[in-house]
Design a protein around this nucleic acid. Structure first.
Lengths: 255, 255
DNA sequence: GTTGACTTTGACGTTACGTCAAGGTGTATA
DNA sequence: TATACACCTTGACGTAACGTCAAAGTCAAC
């Protein structure tokens, strides 16, 4: 009825090192030792190990297992519930991770095309994710958490129709911007139309329109190379600058 | 345009220590150092950090992030897919844990207030739990892993929600069965409702529904004394037979 | 008596940092 | 100008739960 480390380890499906470790941290002491100093485990230890493994299987850390086994049936239920909450939170987070990885894979594979409603959902989430993951940190640092959260909340709460409308507007901004740049006049009719479309587009994510903020954003399009690259890339070089000038005139903030 | 550690850390929402660590492991080196030896980060580093944090957000470990960023777009997709597989495996395992914790909590909690019916259910769950947690190790040693795994695979792979839903349906079957038996008509509305609920209940563990199999199972309920005892005990004598007749009519297999 | 499988203790490695500690630097203010 | 105070540096130890050698002793079998 006495097991040596390896025997018990094999029986329980753990490593001998694990048992030595459990001995070391006083979680599971052998019943005694042989004259040669070998650890010997009896039936009591086997059962305690089974208890330990049961909780370990549940993902409880060894420190807490020791507590639970020390004070049986006292706060056990409490500990389990607390642990369940942790597990649920972890699963929720895991689900996010998986969703994000799925999205990323889909995008990389070029599978992410917007045709039906389901893919729309994916895209909406991708936008939020990109906003958050790529520019979230800097945006948060510059404008504070609330602004970012607010912006994401709006995006999330958008209906597919609103979203589509916003996408259309975004495309219109770019198209009109290109046409306006041909006139080389930010103050002209087309230039001001771009600025107005841009305002409408912004209004989808801004809870209220603000001339100063609009002008500030336009300046940022030129100041921040990422935005510059985006507009210049989508339209043509100088697009960000043109848009900025148009918006500054539109908002009357061109001094 | 140059950030010191703390500044960049605040910007990105990480700790200064994290940046020093990334420097140490050559994941993110500063652009240069001030005469006093201060680390200085530029725009390139900000962007690389954003990339790093993006992947970190996805749960990729730093070593792999370094690889991904070193060989851009080469095996990135591969890495992501591999990572997704890991995440899915982890979630599956997490679901096991949660289901087990739920079960344990239910048993611990319900000791006092359980109705007879629920008590039986609790007992059944407790049996599974005990089998696995207390004797699982020894059973594994004796009969090999596959047998144990196969036996528990279905229950283990269920999410807590699925499990609970299944429990509810199971209860509904029994309750409706009792009501239906009062009508003494397996072909009646209530009788057929029982059969339909039973089909739904089965669908949790069957990968596809099959009329013939359903009818066969119903016959087994009467042929196998264990099942007969279960249904007759949970509802009333004759329940298994009534259920069989209802299902045979429901499936059109009553000849 | 020798082999081979086992045991012991000891100690370092793992991940992604947190947390001091000791000492240098930069700037604002009394 | 002295000093306070906030920042920076490197160095080193701590974390959870073991894995993985290494050196040395023990046991059963041939």
């Amino acid at each position: 009825m006495d097991y040596t480390v390896r025997q018990l380890a094999k029986l329980a499906g753990v490593s001998a090192r694990t048992l030595r470790y459990y001995d070391e941290i006083d979680l599971l002491k052998p019943a005694g030792t042989s004259p040669a100093g070998y650890r010997l485990y009896g039936r009591v230890e086997v059962e305690r190990l089974q208890q330990i493994l049961f909780y370990r299987e549940l993902g409880v850390d060894l420190k807490k297992i020791k507590q639970i086994l020390a004070a049986p049936s006292f706060n056990e239920l409490e500990a389990l519930k607390e642990h369940r909450a942790k597990l649920l939170a972890r699963r929720e987070q895991l689900d996010h991770l998986i969703a994000n990885v799925e999205k990323t894979i889909a995008v990389k594979e070029g599978r992410a095309t917007m045709t039906d409603k389901e893919k729309f959902e994916g895209f909406k989430r991708k936008m939020i994710e990109e906003n958050e993951a790529k520019y979230g940190a800097e945006a948060r640092a510059k404008y504070g958490d609330e602004a970012v959260d607010r912006s994401n909340a709006l995006l999330k709460n958008m209906t597919p129709e609103q979203y589509e409308k916003m996408q259309e507007l975004g495309a219109a901004v770019l198209a009109t911007l290109k046409a306006a740049m041909a006139t080389k006049d930010p103050a002209g009719e087309l230039g001001q139309k771009v600025a107005d479309l841009h305002r409408q587009w912004l209004s989808f994510t801004w809870d209220h329109y603000d001339k100063e903020a609009h002008a500030g954003l336009a300046r940022m399009y030129v100041d921040d190379p990422r935005f510059t690259a985006y507009y210049d890339g989508q339209v043509q070089p100088g697009a960000a600058e043109f848009l900025r000038d148009a918006v500054l005139i539109y908002t009357g903030m061109n001094k």
